[in-house]
Design a protein around this nucleic acid. Structure first.
Lengths: 258, 258
DNA sequence: CGCCTACTTGATTGTCGTCAAGTGGCGTGG
DNA sequence: CCACGCCACTTGACGACAATCAAGTAGGCG
């Protein structure tokens, strides 16, 4: 587990969020281009993390928001029994650390899943700017609200006791994310390991493996290593319970009889 | 299931949040009294709901935030398979509807668990006021952040596969809430039914009943109907994994051998 | 008093976790 | 270039814990 202190020496440069192509999906969430005039001057520094690098730890004092520019991040909490629970996975456009605003303390540990480029934003500076930009303020509220919505969806996922459904839902969410961000909804790379998925969904690794196999056997997806191909998006969404379309209920029944 | 439209006729009066005793734990979350000068003029109307009354439904257009003044509320989502998942329970001081800000649409259904007094706050009006009150703005951001934190804790709860632990955690959280709000940490009323608990935690009602029985047998709590007495708060917190104190591991082992 | 709902308790089934062995990709080093 | 070892993942056998099915109890309310 590498120390984040070492990272200061990695390529560090100043980013101006106002001119960033991702602005409207990042700190300027929900704003259209008109609302961004005059351009807010949010200065973030860009940092590069490698697989396993820690952004911050539980108990660290809150200072920065971390916007994922490329790559992926996971956050997890540790119970006093020493068990870890992965809370969420963050992909480009997502902001890590919003949960630390409330008491100015990180209560998760954030770790890069692979080579990841992050925009590090000083929260106090951002706050000052946002006060002078009504649009930015409103957008930031929406971003926070969206994060609540995300966690709620996670709660729904974990609420269903069917492992098959949980896995399907995760894949479906990823597909949805990629589609929304201009990538292929059907072909993408799983940024996290089976172990991470298992932990996040409250399942054993073996179960994850088996259920992914099940999805493959059913012709819903193809998966080799971490490369996913969604062969039947409607079925996938149907199994996940997040779309009206899908196979006949009989298909689910067949699976059950096995 | 009663219609919320009927409720307009119930005692409706105007509340001035600025002078409300709960202000600093509600819309003025995280502010101390100095910061509330000049007092913000947030006009909420007070409404009374009865058990089973619906505040809003999935898909309704977002307009109001609902601050619980007394009583309790649950929110739930419905999957396309028709299964319901209870997302969260809201107690006095909590605000319902923060997740609807992002796209101005409610995606949960909110329902009163018992006789509940709510402050209904027009979001757009609140937004206007908050822009002119820096403290209010910052406090509101903290409130949103705190809600994210809450949902994260729920994710942790649902992540553990042990039913015993999930139940313990719920009770412990309630105890914590009551303690933080000036009530007894050891004697309180469960505002929700066993069925609701089961649904929220992803368990069967019977399991909830048995695990509560288990907690009783272990001498951790006493519970008759919905009246809870925490007999051993340290053990409870230990089982829940949210405190350092607790019984020796042997006590857990004993339970396991049974 | 009797019905209804919420909850409890018991017996059985089934899903998923655990234990165990095996496969395959990948980087290292000879 | 290949051998090796490591790690992530897969697959199989078995067992445990919670779901389900079923019956029974206890309040709450007409």
């Amino acid at each position: 587990m590498k120390q984040s202190a070492k990272l200061v020496n990695l390529n560090r440069n100043v980013a101006n969020c106002g001119i960033c192509v991702r602005f409207n999906r990042c700190v300027g969430y929900g704003l259209d281009s008109r609302e961004t005039n005059p351009k807010p001057e949010i200065g973030g520094s860009r940092k590069l993390y490698r697989r396993g690098d820690i952004l911050f730890r539980e108990g660290d004092e809150f200072q920065y928001l971390y916007a994922v520019y490329s790559g992926a991040v996971k956050t997890h909490k540790t119970t006093l029994h020493g068990e870890r629970q992965i809370i969420d996975f963050y992909l480009p456009g997502d902001i890590v650390g919003l949960d630390a605003i409330t008491d100015e303390q990180y209560t998760c540990e954030a770790e890069a899943l692979n080579t990841t480029s992050m925009c590090v934003i000083d929260y106090k500076e951002f706050l000052d700017v946002s006060i002078r930009h009504e649009g930015l303020y409103k957008g930031f509220l929406k971003r926070l609200s969206a994060q609540i919505r995300r966690e709620e969806d996670t709660v729904v996922s974990l609420g269903s006791r069917d492992a098959y459904q949980r896995i399907a839902r995760l894949i479906a969410k990823l597909s949805r994310y990629y589609a929304d961000n201009g990538y292929s909804a059907t072909d993408f790379t799983l940024p996290m390991s089976r172990t991470d998925i298992a932990n996040h969904l409250g399942l054993a690794v073996e179960t994850v493996s088996r259920q992914l196999g099940q999805l493959r056997e059913q012709g819903v997806i193809d998966i080799r290593q971490n490369e996913v191909s969604v062969l039947d998006l409607e079925s996938l969404n149907h199994i996940a319970g997040i779309s009206r379309a899908g196979p006949e209920p009989t298909k689910l029944a067949e699976r059950a009889t096995h």
